Simulated scan of single mutants.
Amino acid sequence: MNIFRIKPTIYFDRGAVEYLKNIKNKRVSIVTDPFMLKSGAADKITNIFKANKVEYEIFSDITPDPPIETVAVGVNKMLSFKPDVVIALGGGSSIDAAKSIIFFTVKILNTNEDNYGKPIFIAIPTTSGTGSEVTSFSVITMGTTKFPLINDEIIPDVAIIDADFVKTVPQQITADTAMDVLTHAIEAYVSANSSDYTDALAEKAVKLVFEYLLRAYKDGNDVTAREKLHNASCMAGMAFTNASLGINHSMAHTLGGNFHIPHGRANAIILPYVIKYNASLEAGEETEAGKKYANLSRILGLPCSSVNEGVKSIIAAIKILIKLTNIPMNLREVKIDKNDFSNKLEGMAADALKDKCTATNPIKPSKDELIQLFQEIYGK
């Protein structure tokens, strides 16, 4: 028996933040990062609460790849304030941090027999990338290792997909996050847990990224392109929270932890190599994953007279997107020291092998295969 879950109620289109006017007579915690305060994005929320005389507090210490220490500080603040509603405003880091903060706060209070119910959780993404607003995933950093927390309890209750929050996202972050969306969709599509339901969302997300990424990259004021990428991010999130991911993310997690490469960029660099590996092109086989990659080429109108040609077409198309958005083609171009990389290679392969995302990759890799993949991705 398979299962497909859609938990959050999703409010979308420009101006969807007006949903927050429904919150009255509640205590609200806002989890965000310093830039959201400085840029005025948080004002769109606090102005609504001030008008409605809603009591709120702001925890704005979130940094990229949020460390467990930051989560602990957030838990202590929430233990003291005990909000009825938690709003995560920001990119994947803010939403992931809020998920973990809520999860551990509720566990602590319930263990102490405080009878504190789980607060209403609202996620407002300000990048079109992680899809964290609809997923059961939260990635937290401990030292150089990224640990994914996967639990249905951390899925937000409400997601607000308002393109007004992404209009000013810088050009390169627009590219990195959109490639994260593409990776989510493609990995969910070939996942061992994929289904007709997740495939439909993944296919649509892939089409939207290919159609609108370059438009948004070249003109940040293209509101239609911004909105379509924002929707694609949410759709890909719904796909992978049900189907899970694969070794693309397992490898990106450890690369990010060791070399602080932005997550979306790491995924983009890895993606062509993982597609080639999963499709087993060099073995001359027609794998189920290869057939699905080829089907994406058909959907996109790329050359696809055979599975082999279809797989090569989608790889070539992704490389073109990478090149046109100034994302490095390999890890050497990221200027990672080769000796440092070599010294950490075995540890990264071991981390990727035990990463939870590896379990649903269409091919079960060995540690040696992951080492070889990392070496290929580094470049000559």
Rank of each mutant, 00 (worst) to 15 (best):
D368K: 15
N295H: 15
V85F: 01
R27Y: 07
K364T: 15
S93L: 04
A98T: 06
L149R: 12
F104E: 10
A16M: 01
I173M: 14
F259C: 05
N52W: 00
S93Q: 08
E211C: 06
G15Q: 09
G15I: 04
K292G: 08
K118P: 00
L281N: 06
P8R: 03
D65S: 11
I315Q: 04
I173K: 14
F374W: 02
R5S: 14
P262M: 12
M238G: 02
T241H: 11
E333Y: 04
A16N: 04
A294N: 04
I315H: 05
H260A: 13
T130Y: 02
F59W: 06
Y273I: 02
T46W: 03
I363A: 12
D176F: 13
D96Q: 07
V158C: 10
V334M: 14
G129I: 04
I314R: 07
V17E: 12
G90T: 06
K50W: 02
N330V: 05
P67W: 08
A98F: 02
G301V: 09
K367Y: 08
S250H: 01
V75M: 06
L201T: 02
A352F: 01
I48H: 06
S136W: 00
Q375S: 13
S366D: 13
V223F: 11
C304V: 10
T241W: 01
I58T: 12
T144S: 13
F137N: 07
V209R: 06
L79S: 01
S80N: 14
E369Y: 07
I150H: 08
P362N: 10
L324K: 15
H230C: 10
E57C: 13
E285I: 13
S194A: 15
K38S: 13
A225Q: 00
R332Y: 03
M329K: 10
I101P: 00
S194K: 14
S313Y: 05
D199K: 15
G117W: 04
F103V: 09
A185D: 05
S60V: 09
A72V: 12
M329G: 14
I186V: 15
A98Y: 01
E376W: 00
F121G: 02
D164G: 11
D340C: 03
N361F: 06
A97Y: 00
I318F: 00
N193R: 14
F49Q: 10
F137L: 09
A159C: 11
P303E: 10
R226E: 06
E133A: 05
R27G: 02
N112I: 14
I261Y: 01
Y116H: 11
K53L: 05
I87H: 04
I336V: 12
E57R: 15
V106M: 05
K380W: 00
N278K: 08
T241R: 08
Q375H: 04
N361G: 09
N47S: 15
T126W: 05
